[in-house]
Design a protein around this nucleic acid. Structure first.
Lengths: 122, 122
DNA sequence: CAAGCCAACTAGGTTAACTATGTTGGCTAT
DNA sequence: ATAGCCAACATAGTTAACCTAGTTGGCTTG
């Protein structure tokens, strides 16, 4: 693997790619090297690279597109190093949206007879 | 796998365990079932369970101890540590999961006949 | 009894193989 | 030239196998 520190390889690769993104070496919207290329660059197996990609995907730093590649996230500008505020704001908005929609759904479900979609089928 | 939704199994398991933790069904300091037990409970392979555990570990929700088990992180450990990024990641995952589930419910309620061709806003 | 060994558990890391699916470009046949 | 097919490449998910290493409890041996 990259280095023989105690840190597992898939985390080392994730760290490295994370640094490249944060440092601007990989700009938002730009594609990362393919899995195979990264495996060769890091002298790692495909599996560990895929694990690293999964972590970055889970963190929201990158977005994968099947058949095309993995791209640095660009929409909400991924909370640079200490500026998690934007991310938290986005999450708060999302929660409010979910709450509002859930209330509407619950209102429909708790209406015994008038269920607009469920009847007239059975 | 658990459900036949489009959501991959390792994410479903991570979601479920995340819910158990947030719901208090798994208290802080309490051990999760072993990997093998979870694999049986979810009718999944060891691999997908390990992937789910890796996600929760990466999010900081749980702490693994080799030879002993995986434990729900204590509250005092949870709130501090400065790494809000993992916390945000966990929140984003929860929001994504809730969004997905809500979309499915809405699709049912808003579709009188059939055709689940709803795509939801971006 | 005490010390040590050992088997059976545990998490964790790595690799490989297989499948599914989407994209792209090049070739071929009309 | 256009349409269609197809091979190559891409991400993504799943599974299985093998290895390391820590823990625990029981058994054996001194």
């Amino acid at each position: 693997m990259v280095k023989k520190t105690g840190r597992p390889g898939y985390l080392q690769i994730a760290d490295e790619l994370r640094e490249r993104i944060r440092g601007g070496f990989l700009a938002p919207g730009e594609p990362l090297p393919s899995t195979a290329q990264l495996a060769e660059q890091f002298d790692a197996s495909l599996s560990v690279v895929k694990m690293a990609m999964g972590i970055l995907r889970n963190e929201g730093l990158v977005v994968g597109q099947q058949g095309k590649g993995v791209f640095v996230r660009e929409d909400d500008q991924l909370a640079q190093d200490g500026d998690l505020r934007a991310e938290v704001t986005a999450l708060r908005n999302a929660v409010q949206d979910l709450t509002r929609r859930l209330e509407q759904v619950e209102a429909v479900l708790h209406t015994p007879e008038q269920a607009p979609a469920r009847k007239a089928r059975g």
